[in-house]
Design a protein around this nucleic acid. Structure first.
Length: 269
DNA sequence: ATGGTAGCGATGCTA
C-alpha cells in the first residue's frame, strides 16, 4: 500500500495537480492538509471519478483536512479525542467547535490521521500555547491507542509545523527566536516519537538539505532554503512495513505549486 | 532594497 501526505494549500486551486500526483505515484491513500474550504466546496467528484472515496472536514476558508482512499474509508472521525479548541479569538466569543485540523479514517487496515498542527505564529502568541497543548493532547490520545493495542496499525501524517532537527532547516541562525525549532516544540514532537511513533520517511530520505516546505517568498525554493516539517509517523507495527519512501520535490516546481511537497511511503503487505 | 508570494474573499488575515 502506498500512503502519502500533502499540505496542498487550497484543494480548489490545486485539484488538477492532486489528481495528476495520485496517478503519477499510484497512491492508494492520500492525506491532505490546508484544503481551505468547507465540506460543500470540496471537489469530490473529480476524485470519485479516479476511484477514490473522500472524507473531509472544513468549516471555513481556514485549515481543512481530508483523506482520499481507494482501499476503503471507514470509521471517519473529525477531531481526535481530547483535541483542544482554539479559544484565543477573544473573550466573550464562545465558539467551542474545534478547528478542522484532524481527520481519522481506517483505510486498508491502517488507521490514518491527517493532521494539520497549529502554526504557533510567534513564541509569545496565544497560538503558540495552543500549538503545544494540541500536541500534548495528541500525544496522550495516541499513546492510549498503543497502550490498548501495541500491534495497532496507526499512521499520524501531515504538516507538523515543527523542524525536529537542526538539519531540518537550511540555516539555524535564520530561526533565532522563531517558532518551528524551539525547544518546547521539539520536545512535544519527540514525546510523540517516544510514545512509539517513528518517522518512517527519514531513513529513506536522510538530510541534510532534504525539505518538504519552501516559503513562496524570497526565492526559497530555487535557493534550496526549505524546512522539513511534514512527516509520516508510524506505530511499531506500521513502521515495520515501510519498504521505501520519498519526498516529491518535483511537485514544488512550476506555476501553481503548493509551498509544500508531498511525502510518500510504501508499506509492504 | 526592512522587502517578497499565495489563497481566500472582500480588506485584511493567515502562512
Amino acid at each position: 500500500m502506498r500512503l502519502a501526505t500533502w499540505n496542498v494549500n487550497s484543494i480548489r486551486s490545486r485539484a488538477d495537480r492532486v489528481a495528476a500526483f495520485l496517478q503519477r505515484h499510484d497512491v492508494d491513500v492520500l492525506a491532505l492538509q490546508e484544503t481551505k474550504c468547507r465540506d460543500d466546496q470540496f471537489p469530490e467528484m473529480m476524485f470519485d471519478a479516479l476511484g477514490y472515496e473522500v472524507a473531509h472536514v472544513g468549516h471555513s476558508q481556514w485549515n481543512g483536512v481530508a483523506i482520499l482512499s481507494r482501499v476503503g474509508l471507514e470509521d471517519v472521525e473529525i477531531d481526535f479525542p481530547g483535541q483542544p479548541c482554539w479559544s484565543g479569538g477573544g473573550a466573550g466569543v464562545a465558539d467551542q467547535q474545534t478547528e478542522a485540523r484532524a481527520l481519522g479514517a481506517t483505510c486498508g487496515g491502517v488507521r490514518v490521521w491527517s493532521l494539520y498542527v497549529p502554526n504557533g505564529r510567534t513564541l509569545t502568541d496565544p497560538h503558540y500555547t495552543y500549538k503545544l497543548e494540541w500536541l500534548a493532547a495528541l500525544r496522550a490520545t495516541a499513546g492510549d491507542w498503543l497502550a490498548k493495542d501495541p500491534e495497532a496499525q496507526v499512521a499520524l501524517v501531515g504538516d507538523w509545523n515543527i523542524a525536529p532537527q537542526d538539519d531540518d532547516v537550511w540555516d539555524m541562525s535564520a530561526f533565532a527566536h522563531s517558532t518551528h525549532v524551539s525547544a518546547p516544540e521539539r520536545a512535544a514532537f519527540r514525546a510523540i516519537v517516544d510514545a512509539g511513533f517513528a518517522d518512517v520517511v527519514r531513513p529513506f530520505a536522510p538530510g541534510p538539505g532534504v525539505y518538504t516546505y519552501w516559503d513562496y517568498v524570497r526565492l526559497r525554493f530555487p535557493r534550496r532554503e526549505g524546512m522539513r516539517i511534514d512527516f509520516i509517523l508510524g506505530s511499531p507495527a506500521l513502521a515495520a512495513r515501510a519498504s521505501r519512501a520519498l519526498i516529491d520535490r518535483e511537485e514544488r516546481k512550476g506555476k501553481g505549486a503548493s509551498d509544500h511537497a508531498p511525502v510518500i511511503v510504501e508499506l509492504a503487505d
